[in-house]
Design a protein around this nucleic acid. Structure first.
Lengths: 341, 341
DNA sequence: TTGTAAGCGTTATCAC
DNA sequence: GTGATAACGCTTACAA
């Protein structure tokens, strides 16, 4: 019954105004007399009007859509980032069209086409499948987060600083040997700075250190096995001295701690551990884990703020093309918990 | 330079066809000769055409949008559900417009209006702020997941069966006393069946049991404190006998296990624990947790399948109004790990 | 197999 | 302050 949609036309007839006036009621109400505003407001209720933003978009070209391309959602980092991104709706008003990649390049390109077909005004990419060079070619404002970003803007955690903080904390804990366990991260992605930062700091502080950069597997159980091997090799190699271990993330740190707890029936003074991310597992682990906390809320906000400024520029009559890429870094926050003193 | 958008009109002129023919090329290519298809395909490339689905939607009324309303994303259950929902794009082709609620009714109603303004064809609700009665009044196909669903369709885990499985597993483990720890869940939401199922099973099997239904706090630390109290009261009340404890979810189970490990320096034979959800914490905990696994992938798929059938019905010339609500239940899968034998 | 022309529900431009 | 009228880019009868 109430299924026929009410349009500006219906309202215009009902109120004896023109479509134009109805449109103005929404976009510039003050240009109408107060009385007429009320008349229209009443008509809207009487007819149970439901606005149609798609028609609006077609007419004025502003979709208020932002696309989000994610690699997955089972890593807490991505789901929390999505959460914070979506939360910016309250401040910026942009609606989000979100796709989760499969890792297959063709598939993600298809997603990108869908996004473009829906006239997104901007794009946030966390997925790393499509090169920044190709992304840049689509000629839509883009901000990348924690991925290769040579040809596009980006907001990232200051990974270098984070690694520095971790190394310094371990040094302050009087560790005799500092160890960083990570996979073989490519040099062109932001998190490679965790490796650089750790190494540089150890060198600068003249600390004994070892880098264990090796394949850590792709599934949880796989990773567990790899880390188990790493653990026993460390245990054998450095018996009796204090080992400060900087793990690549909290999940890895948690696995290591479980191994230690089971081996020693407790957490011996001989170990100090720092993770990365401050994901829930860090606080929910049996021994709450010291970690380099990423400020995901801040990253998400800054990414959207930057994107919004780029999108706004495009709406100007004479938009200045972006001349220089922006790569912003957000400082991490060191969380000292029970795996360090 | 390449900024002026190419439309069907441009292609029509370029190829000396009419707009209609171009449209047909996309929607019913076989109605064109092969040769002409090729001509148009070439023109598309030459002009670098970029389709505009918004215009399409305005013309044919099918937005291919589905709205998703979530309460939050920090609970793994919701982010994983979102993940699986988004993954159905590959099978159903619907795009998702997602909003994360704040718990504030007015705010969520505003989100709903946005969704309707973008002409979503259907809605998936996990958020529980707005009553199903109100939701039903918006006259758009809706499927609810794990929330109050009196007036709308829903797909839920078979919570009753899950609780039954948990209770039976504990009984098979020769527990002397069965305990269910949960908060005071309202009776009209699906997860109340975890309480009913547990109690009924204990009664039927003539097992000793106790229900501990109490406020378990809203923050992690709060919950930790509450569960600590519960743990010590259980420990005091049932010394020396085997306690089978069914926790409301894996996070709660993990907290309890950490408390036990710290109290006893290990996991004594005197305890058996079962969680609910099969969230990552269950497998990542120091003792992998036995749990009632929710089949989130299946739930998401079934929810979309149901929604799609409803949306399809609406597109028919003479749509039958839905006469009877559908409430489907998905069987959970018992995961036996190290907190039971 | 292809074309004409009238929509879809807004906004934008120009008058009055 | 308010109104005509032409876009916006596509689909869909109805013709041919």
């Amino acid at each position: 019954m109430e299924n026929k949609k009410v349009t500006f036309n219906d309202i215009a007839k009902y109120t004896n105004f023109s479509k134009t006036t109805i449109s103005r009621y929404f976009n510039d109400p003050d240009s109408l007399t107060l009385k007429n505003q009320e008349i229209i407001a009443q008509a809207l209720k009487d007819l149970n009007y439901q606005e149609n933003k798609l028609a609006k978009v077609l007419a004025n070209g502003k979709s208020e859509f932002v696309g989000i391309l994610l690699p997955n959602l089972f890593l807490n980092y991505y789901s929390e980032m999505l959460n914070q991104l979506l939360a910016t709706y309250e401040t910026f008003g942009y609606k989000f069209l979100v796709f989760v990649g499969t890792g297959a390049e063709e598939t993600e390109r298809k997603y990108l086409q869908e996004l473009l077909a829906y006239k997104i005004e901007g794009l946030i990419v966390l997925s790393h499948t499509i090169s920044s060079k190709e992304l840049a070619s689509y000629n839509v404002p883009i901000v990348a987060i924690e991925r290769e970003d040579e040809y596009i803007n980006s907001i990232n955690t200051d990974n270098y600083l984070g690694a520095e903080q971790a190394a310094n904390l371990l040094i302050k804990n009087d560790c005799d040997i500092l160890i960083h366990v990570n996979s073989e991260v490519p040099e062109n992605i932001p998190s490679y700075d965790r490796i650089r930062g750790f190494r540089d700091t150890c060198e600068k502080q003249n600390a004994n250190y070892e880098m264990i950069l090796t394949d850590l597997g792709n599934t949880y159980n796989d990773t567990k096995e790899r880390i188990k091997e790493v653990f026993y090799s460390i245990k054998d190699k450095y018996p009796g001295i204090r080992k400060g271990i900087f793990m690549a993330n909290d999940t890895h740190a948690n696995i290591l701690i479980n191994l230690i707890m089971r081996e020693y029936g407790g957490f011996p003074d001989e170990y100090r551990i720092v993770g990365f991310d401050d994901s829930p597992i860090a606080s929910e682990a049996i021994i709450p884990i010291s970690t380099v906390g990423q400020q995901i809320d801040k990253i998400a906000y800054e990414a959207m703020a930057l994107l919004v400024s780029l999108m706004d520029e495009r709406k100007k009559r004479k938009p200045k093309p972006q001349t220089e890429l922006i790569h912003e870094k957000i400082a991490p926050v060191l969380m000292q918990r029970d795996t360090t003193r």
